[in-house]
Write a protein that binds this DNA or RNA. Structure first.
Lengths: 196, 196
DNA sequence: ATATTTCCGTAATAAGTATTACGGATTCGG
DNA sequence: CCGAATCCGTAATACTTATTACGGAAATAT
């Protein structure tokens, strides 16, 4: 199979997996429905991903790449505007349909391996990046950059993510994301002004 | 069946349901395992709760009572200490094994009815209560008490709840809960001092 | 005490699902 | 253009589970 065709087929499988995850949940996303929807065969699913958890682990791995891309954008200046820009994109990503679907899958996995993989490809990448950026903005402080990053993320996301995961709210629109990013950054810098 | 016996049997069923939910997740919590573990019969489960979602809806309903009890404690003074006390209990409740299990069940329910019930018995009760308390502490402000309550809850809980639900952290201990409640209250009152 | 309801324990039903298997079509390397 | 590998579509396998059914025991009411 040509590499190009294979990549397209992989994208079809991932799209179908996300769609099923959003519509039916992890338990309801059956391999047969996935194969039919993706226009792939069941055999291919098992040959490529091993088993059902493996398929969703692959989704999580690719999600980690998306997280990296979001963080790498606007990596130039280390000022409040850069933090707002990162927050805006980050919030849209974290509350977007794909991240929410992955979190639901992780919540359904009682063993916790999916959750661990999701955290490694998400929070464990985001936190140091944000901490470095905030540290560069605020300078030396009584509070460590790590704690400031946690604070800023709490202000930014709030309970939007858990409410998205249990299905009580829709994804916030672009305006909401920007305003929350601005407010969170403003609150952080009011509590811990630069050069404190 | 005597009312007393029935109440005890209901508690056994609820305990078993929570235990299975924590160990196996919603899909893995089978009615047969639940009956065996609770010492009840399958027929009783269906006679009392209708079906499997109905059983977990009953769990959510009883959880709402617990939330009310937590909020009603220390309802006397309207000062920062009261807010810290409420926050401490609230965080312990929200990150405790039972609330986490219910959130996992809601996340596994793609239709969203469990999530809706959980929100109605949880957030929709907590938010107005906290907003009233904060409003009484801070007095009139540019920000509405509702927004301040959201801010305080974000500071209090952060991402602990979602991380608990996807299984990457253990429940915070009592010390952590108290410190977070103190820090969240301190941050809130620094950002929006009373009599602003 | 006895008739009636309720419950337990177990089995049966019916449906769904992860995983494996296979024949025929398609694609790829030479 | 041809053989080998890969893939699709479908079916078969083996297993699990929600829900219903039923006989006998326990409790309840009269």
């Amino acid at each position: 199979m040509r590499a190009e065709t294979r990549i397209r087929r992989q994208a079809q499988i991932e799209d179908a997996a996300y769609a099923l995850l959003e519509e039916k949940g992890y338990a309801g996303a059956t391999m047969q429905a996935l194969a039919r929807r993706a226009g792939a065969s069941i055999e291919t699913l098992y040959n490529w991903y091993g088993d059902k958890p493996g398929l969703f682990r692959a989704l999580i791995a690719r999600n980690a790449e998306t997280v990296q891309e979001v963080l790498d954008q606007r990596a130039g200046a280390a000022d409040a505007a850069a933090l707002v820009a990162v927050g805006e994109r980050l919030l849209a990503l974290l509350t977007g349909p794909r991240a929410v679907a992955l979190n639901r899958a992780a919540a359904a996995d009682a063993e916790g391996t999916l959750g661990l993989a999701l955290a490694q490809g998400g929070r464990d990448i985001v936190m140091p990046h944000v901490a470095t950026l905030i540290g560069a903005i605020t300078g030396a402080h009584g509070e460590t950059p790590d704690r400031l990053a946690e604070l800023w993320l709490a202000l930014l996301v709030g309970d939007l993510q858990i409410r998205r995961v249990i299905g009580t709210i829709a994804a916030p629109d672009a305006n909401t994301c920007r305003q929350r990013a601005e407010t969170a950054t403003d609150h952080l810098l009011r509590l811990y002004p630069p050069q404190g």
